[in-house]
């Protein structure tokens, strides 16, 4: 049974409708986003199901996951804190900002906080060079920009996400 297709029949139909029926492979990227929203990363089962929906090989799907940086094939923190340290951001203190943020959270780039909520990543240009230091939070199927940041404002953003997660946990407990 294709669980993605069963659970999200309408959404998948709407995605497929954007592309000519003979070129439904075009839908691989939006379907991967859908799968990632569901599980936090793209599971092997999701790849197989997407391959089945689009009538392409699992290898084709996996190659897309591997090529593009916003897809993950392993579980990480629920929220990816993605700090840009590219040239224009670096000229406005982004490298020191990243260092301070890592220190405050007690983890290094690529690591996950002990509560499993946050992964810190160093990323390339995200198109906010004039408002550096800047990071985006990728998680829950969304990407949210946070611009003109200081360590204090960044930690406030992270604390708010932590509280949201905590409340969800208590709500379902």
């Amino acid at each position: 049974m294709n669980t993605l297709l069963t659970k999200y029949a309408d959404e998948i139909r709407a995605i497929l409708a954007k592309y000519p029926p003979e070129h439904k492979r075009s839908a691989v990227m939006p379907l991967l986003y859908l799968a990632q929203r569901e599980a936090g990363y793209v599971t092997a089962q999701a790849m197989a199901e997407i391959a089945e929906i689009l009538e392409i090989s699992i290898t084709d799907v996996a190659s897309i996951v591997g090529f593009y940086t916003l897809y993950y094939d392993q579980p990480h923190g629920r929220y990816h804190i993605q700090v840009c340290t590219d040239l224009p951001c670096a000229l406005r203190g982004a490298e020191d900002f990243l260092k301070a943020l890592c220190q405050a959270l007690g983890i290094e780039v690529g690591q996950v906080t002990p509560d499993g909520l946050f992964t810190i990543e160093e990323v390339k240009c995200i198109g906010a060079c004039h408002r550096a230091p800047v990071f985006q939070v990728q998680g829950d199927g969304e990407i949210v920009f946070h611009e003109n940041q200081t360590l204090e404002t960044a930690l406030a953003v992270i604390e708010a996400l932590r509280q949201k997660a905590q409340q969800e946990k208590e709500g379902t407990a």
């Binding site: 954007k18 070129h23 492979r25 075009s26 839908a27 691989v28 990227m29 939006p30 991967l32 986003y33 689009l54 392409i56 190659s63 897309i64 090529f67 593009y68 940086t69 916003l70 897809y71 990323v123 390339k124 240009c125």
Partner: peptide
């Protein structure tokens, strides 16, 4: 709209078209 997924090369127009076709950019 069609959302990319983090690949600078897809700004190159033929890579963009490949990506839009569901292939590597």
């Amino acid at each position: 709209t069609h959302l990319g997924a983090g690949a600078y090369i897809c700004g190159e127009e033929t890579a963009l078209l490949e990506s839009l076709e569901g292939k590597l950019g």
